[in-house]
């Protein structure tokens, strides 16, 4: 099987996941496409946009989830970014933070750099199997609107470590660029949660 070319439209998928997100949801995207998706869904001080740190999104989510156990943390990243930091799934699986969801928008390609195939697009690497093997008891395979709605509902009432692979069509919508000053992003995020 080749990459999930027939997957969901990424901007609509992000909007569905974040609809009525609530003040207690903190979101960390990966760099690149998921960062633009997050910005397109509506700017929010509780987003910590990444313009770099490839491979680090899930671990930022872990540190944040451990520090803020009463808030929900969603990492929404791409397959390429997740593959660069695959060990983070093992580290998070050991920690089992109940307030963390790691959601991978998997289109099987590196969209930001010219649609080169990723390891998931080649059909060889199954991120769900990796997550399960790392101790994510709840691992969702999201391939249609029904499953996406279920994921959004679970995210609303997050009650245990969650992984989801969302099949995304390999189409790159126009970029929506958020703030890119890292110090500004850091300060406004902390201020938004009372720090």
């Amino acid at each position: 099987m080749s990459g999930p070319v027939s997957g969901l439209e990424r901007r609509a998928a992000m909007a569905t996941l974040l609809a009525d997100r609530g003040e207690d949801l903190l979101v960390v995207p990966g760099l690149g496409s998921t960062c633009w998706d997050l910005a397109a869904a509506g700017d929010n001080d509780r987003n910590f946009y990444l313009w770099g740190a490839m491979g680090g999104a899930a671990m930022i989510g872990l540190g944040l989830a451990l520090a803020q156990p009463r808030r929900r943390v969603a990492v929404v990243t791409g397959d390429g970014e997740m593959l660069m930091g695959l060990g983070a799934l093992a580290t998070i699986g050991v920690q089992q933070p109940a307030n963390l969801a790691v959601i991978v928008f998997d289109n099987g390609v590196y969209g930001e750099t010219g649609m080169q195939p990723s390891h998931t697009g080649a059909g060889a690497v199954d991120l769900l199997a990796v997550a399960r093997g790392c101790g994510f008891a709840a691992s969702l395979d999201v391939r249609d609107e029904v499953a996406l709605a279920d994921l959004a509902a679970r995210l609303k009432n997050l009650s245990g470590l969650l992984f989801a692979r969302v099949a995304i069509a390999a189409v790159e919508p126009p970029r929506v660029l958020p703030e890119r000053d890292g110090e500004v992003l850091k300060r406004r995020f902390r201020a938004a949660i009372g720090l």
């Binding site: 899930a58 930022i60 944040l64 803020q68 930091g85 983070a88 850091k186």
Partner: peptide, 14 residues
């Protein structure tokens, strides 16, 4: 390198 990202997330969360 995971620890660099962990520390950043920790600080974001106070």
């Amino acid at each position: 390198e995971e620890g660099v990202a962990l520390a950043a997330g920790a600080w974001l969360g106070g």
